[in-house]
């Protein structure tokens, strides 16, 4: 029973809440194929009109960044405050900018 190869693959589920919003990750389901994954995602994650569209993709297909690399990846942005509009001091009298 614990033979991992006999388990249906895992799929990550993304739901678009309504038109105009992007799909957002909500959880995962097990399913034999993509069609079944959509059906399971529908039953599991949209019982109360939570969405108008679903994406599913095999969990094994996701490549994610390593938390250990977080500093190397994201910290360089910390000292680049000039990328934010608030970095620039504009005199009070100047408007629409």
């Amino acid at each position: 029973m614990s033979d991992a190869s006999k388990e249906w693959p895992l799929w990550e589920v993304f739901v678009r809440g309504k038109g105009g919003l992007s799909h957002r990750h909500v959880g995962s389901v097990h399913a034999a194929d993509a069609k079944m994954a959509v059906e399971h995602a529908r039953d599991t994650y949209t019982r109360r009109m939570e969405g108008v569209s679903l994406w599913v993709l095999p969990s094994a297909q996701i490549t994610s960044s390593d938390p250990g690399d977080a500093a190397a990846l994201f910290e360089p942005a910390e000292d680049k405050v000039y990328r934010h509009p608030t970095f620039y001091k504009i005199p009070d009298g100047i408007t629409h900018i």
């Binding site: 991992a4 388990e7 389901v29």
Partner: peptide, 20 residues
């Protein structure tokens, strides 16, 4: 059933399979 599935899916992120 849905609640059970949300929780299994969350627990699986810790490296324990659904079948286990």
């Amino acid at each position: 059933a849905g609640h059970g599935l949300y929780l299994y899916s969350a627990a699986e992120t810790l490296g324990t399979s659904r079948d286990e």
